[in-house]
Amino acid sequence: MASEGKPVNPPGTYLKRQDLERLPGIIRYKPSARYLFAAGQALSRFLKGLKEGKILGVRCPVCGRVYVPPRAYCEYCHAPTSEWVELPGTGVVHTAVVSYIATDRSRMEKPEIVGVIRLDAPGYREDSYEFAGLFHKICGVTPEQVMDGSVIGMRVKPRWKPPEERTGSITDIECFEPVEGGEQ
C-alpha cells in the first residue's frame, strides 16, 4: 500500500496564461454558427400573446395542470394539451439573486436582480413541487431586500414594455415588479 495514496504521480503539463499565447503550434479559431430556432406551435402562440400583453398558459385535459411556458403536451400525462388559459400574470417570487456579472463573466456596471416567479395559475396544489412559472428579471426591489430574504414570497406582476416596442419575445416583459400594497 502506497503511503502517499493513489493516484501516484498523476501526469499533466500545466501552462501559464502567458505561455499559452506564445506556444508554438497554438491554434486560434473563432467559430460562428447562426441559427434560426423554431418556437413550435405552443411557444409561437405564447410569444404572440406576450406581444399583446398577455401571459398565456395551456391546460392538460387529463391532470388539469396549466403550463407556463406552454408545451404542446403534458409532461406528466403525455397527453396533448388542449385549452388556452389567460393568466392574470401575478405571482410570487420563488427565488431571487443579485448578479454582478454578465454572460461572458465580465463585471456588470449595475447589478441586476433576477429570479423565478411562481405564477398564479389553476391546476396546482398550494406549495406543490412543480408549478407554472417564469425565469425573469425583478425590478423595484433593492439588493438588500434580496439578501435579507424579504423578496422571496413577495407578490409581483409583470411590467410590460409599451405596445409599440414589443416584438413577441420574452423581453416584452421588462421585468416583474412588486404589486402595490400586495406584500404577504
Binding site: 411556458p69 439573486v97 454572460t103 423581453t171
Partner: peptide, 30 residues
C-alpha cells in the same frame, strides 16, 4: 462561462442575457 450560455433555452432564457452562475445562485438562495 460564455459557452455555458448555450445550455439555456434559446427563446425564453437567452434573450435575458443569463450567466450560468445565475441558475446556481437562484437554487442556493432558495
Amino acid at each position: 462561462q460564455y459557452v455555458f450560455a448555450y445550455i439555456w433555452d434559446p427563446i425564453l432564457e437567452r434573450p435575458l442575457g443569463p450567466n450560468l452562475i445565475w441558475i446556481f445562485a437562484m437554487e442556493m438562495r432558495r
